[in-house]
Design a binder for these strands. Sequence first.
DNA 1: ATAATAAGTGAGTAATCACTCATTTAGGAG
DNA 2: CTCCTAAATGAGTGATTACTCACTTATTAT
Lengths: 213, 213
Amino acid sequence: MVRKKQGDKENAIIEAAVKVFSQKSYHGSTTSEIAKEAGVAEGTIFRYFRTKKDILSKILIKVIESYAQTVVVDSLREFLTNYKDSNANEKEVIKALLRERLKVIEANLPLVKILFTEIQFHPDLRKVWVEKVVRPSMDVAVAYIEKKKKEGKIKAEVNAEVATRSFVGMVFFMVLSKLMLYEKLDLSLSESGELDQIVDILFEGIAARTIKG
Amino acid sequence: MVRKKQGDKENAIIEAAVKVFSQKSYHGSTTSEIAKEAGVAEGTIFRYFRTKKDILSKILIKVIESYAQTVVVDSLREFLTNYKDSNANEKEVIKALLRERLKVIEANLPLVKILFTEIQFHPDLRKVWVEKVVRPSMDVAVAYIEKKKKEGKIKAEVNAEVATRSFVGMVFFMVLSKLMLYEKLDLSLSESGELDQIVDILFEGIAARTIKG
DNA sequence: ATAATAAGTGAGTAATCACTCATTTAGGAG
DNA sequence: CTCCTAAATGAGTGATTACTCACTTATTAT
C-alpha cells in the first residue's frame, strides 16, 4: 500500500522549483509554473512557503549547510590521514577528495547552477554562503598547504590562498564549461581523466622540467 | 557649445541597461527602471529597441563581436604567434598577455557579469558566444601549446585543452571571487601579484621540486 | 518665420505577476 | 456513519509588467 507521506507536496514543490529555477533563473520563473511542474495548485505553494523568495532561500540554505558539513568532514579527515600515514602522496589524497566532491556536484548540478547564479543577486544568501562555506573552506585549505610547506612538500614561495583559489577555479571552470557547451553532461566528470590532469597541473605545472642554472 | 549628438539617448539607455542588468539580472530588471536610470521616458526605449530582450541582445552581441572577437581572439593569436622566433620566456609572454586582458576585463566588469550570467538562460546568445569566442580562442591556445610541446618547452603529456581550461578557470575564478567578496574591487587585478603567482603555478605547479626516482 | 519631419513623451493597455481566502476535499477518531 | 480538523484548491486581487500610440517638443530645410 502506498501511504502518502506528509511532506510529499513540500518535496514536490522544492524539486519542481529546483528544476524551474535552474532553467529560467529565479526572476525568470513564476510560481504558477512551479505549481504546474510540481502537480499542485498554486495556492498550495503558499501553505508551505511564505513567499517565492522563501522557496529559493530554503533550497539554498539547505545546500549551503550540506556543503558546510563537508568542510568539517574534510578538515577532520585530513587530521586523521595525517596520523595514519603521513607519507601519503598528497596528489593522490587531493585526487580522491576531488573525485568524491565531483560525484556530489554531478548529482546536484541544477542546485549548483542555482547557487552560483543567485548568490550574485541575493546578498543575504551570499553572506551565508561566504561565512559558512567559503571562509571555512579557505581556512582548511590554507592550513593544509601551510603544513605541507613546512614539510617541504609544497614550495615555500606558494601563496596558500592563491593556490587554493587557483585549484577551485580550475575545477569550477571545468564543471562550468561542460555545463555550457553540452546541454547534458556526456561523460561523468568524476570519472573523466580531466580530473587527474588538473591535479597534475596544479602540483607539477605544464612546463617541461629543465635543469635550472 | 555642447552639441547634442545623435545616438546620445541610445547610448544612455545602453549604459543604464548595463548597470541595471548587472545589478538585478535581466529578468529582475524592468524597463521603467532602465528608463529612469537613463533619464529618458519609458517610451523612448522602444524607439531604439523593439523589446527588452533586444536591449540585452544588442549589448551582448556588441560585446561578443566587436570586443571579444577582436580583443580576445585576434590579440590572442597575435600574442601567441608573433613571439614565435624570440627566445622570450613563455611565462613572461603569458603574464604580459594576461595583464593586458585583465585591464580590459576590469574596465568592463558589469558587462562581463551580464555575459556570464545571461548566456546561461539565453541559448541564442550562448551559441554566438561559443562560436565566435570560445572555440576560436581554444583553437589558438591549443595550437600554441602543441607547438611548445614540440619545442620541448611544455610537457608532452599535458592535454592542451585541459591546460587551457585550467588556466582560464584560474583567472576567471580570481576575478569572480574578488567580485563576490568585495562589492568593489579594492585593488587592481592587473596590478596585483596574484596574476604572476597564478602563471607560476600553471607553469611550475605547487609541489616542491624533488629528485624523482 | 514657417512648414515638414523626426524625436521624445507618458498616460494608457492587456497580460501576467505573487499572493489571498472562502470554499471544498480528505483522513482519522469516536 | 458523523464529526472534526487540517490540507488543498483555484478563482479572485491589486500591483506591476512590457509595450503602444496619440500627442508634444525639438530639429532641420527652405
